[in-house]
Write a protein that binds this DNA or RNA. Structure first.
Lengths: 157, 157
DNA sequence: AGTGAAACTCTGGCACC
DNA sequence: GGTGCCAGAGTTTCACT
């Protein structure tokens, strides 16, 4: 699937996708046209899902972020859970939604403007949902690291 | 700080930063040169911290991801905690590290290749650390949503 | 994969509001 | 102050080797 050039390229683009093909060619031992060709192929094939801008911590830190751990009722029809998932996915406040193992079933990272907005979210999406058994909230005091990056190596080839 | 054009632009770039100034000019009512100028200013001022490529879910799903909730010992010297934070920050496996309120002190999202690698990580960084009192791990079964985006509006101006 | 030319995109100066 | 227009610089794309 990927040769070692692709792997280096994917790692580099996950760190900073703003560099030109020529700059990347200096890091990876390849001509700029080969770099450009590979980037285009990786985007077309979907290996690179999308490229996005991340805002400064100064802006993001003005939001109230919360980790919410959900326990669901056990015998839910698949349809209800799908609806619930779709509702969460549609909410702008939900940055991350993961189905997890262990005593909790779902974990959310929610970014709101303030506590009032968080309460509105929790009331309408969580407390009001018949499939949520209970939920527990921790608020984010400080972001120490946020790097979505997955470093690839030859084992990912 | 930001006028309504900047806010629209920041929202658009958080969703997809691969569009040209001309394409963005069709969404936002501005000429392409004005768009390009604003993007450059937003990057120079640091409002846009960086732009990154996100890999496809197919690639990321081959990793074993875990949510780890940490409780620390209470009377830690600030220096020890700083060291601990720096170690976690330096580990590629740590995608997200948050200081939180509530019964836990720190929450991690960790991406490893397999359980063996996760255990190595947990043993060397968590179990071996004198400042960690206990930790609890949930593994990610399924990613339902992952959008780091923070939607801005006139209240962020 | 690399080279070079064509096409496209961004940059910077100037007039305008 | 910021915008739009246009020309030049820089970057990507494409045919060919």
């Amino acid at each position: 699937m990927f040769d070692s050039f692709d792997l280096k390229l994917l790692n580099a683009l996950q760190e900073d996708s703003d560099r030109t093909a020529e700059e990347l060619a200096e890091i990876i031992a390849l001509s700029s046209s080969a770099i450009a060709r590979r980037i285009r192929r990786l985007k077309e094939s979907g290996a690179i899902a999308r490229t996005i801008a991340l805002l400064s911590a100064e802006i993001v830190d003005h939001r109230l972020r919360a980790i919410v751990r959900l326990q669901l009722h056990e015998h839910e029809k698949a349809g209800d859970f799908t609806d619930f998932r779709n509702r969460l996915e549609a909410r702008d406040e939900v940055q991350l939604c993961l189905e997890v193992s262990g005593s909790d079933d779902v974990m959310l990272l929610v970014a709101c403007r303030d506590m009032a907005e968080f309460n509105d979210f929790a009331d309408s999406e969580l407390a009001a949902s018949p499939i949520v058994r209970r939920y527990e909230t921790s608020f984010v005091k400080k972001e120490i690291k946020n790097r979505p990056m997955v470093r690839l190596d030859e084992r990912d080839a």
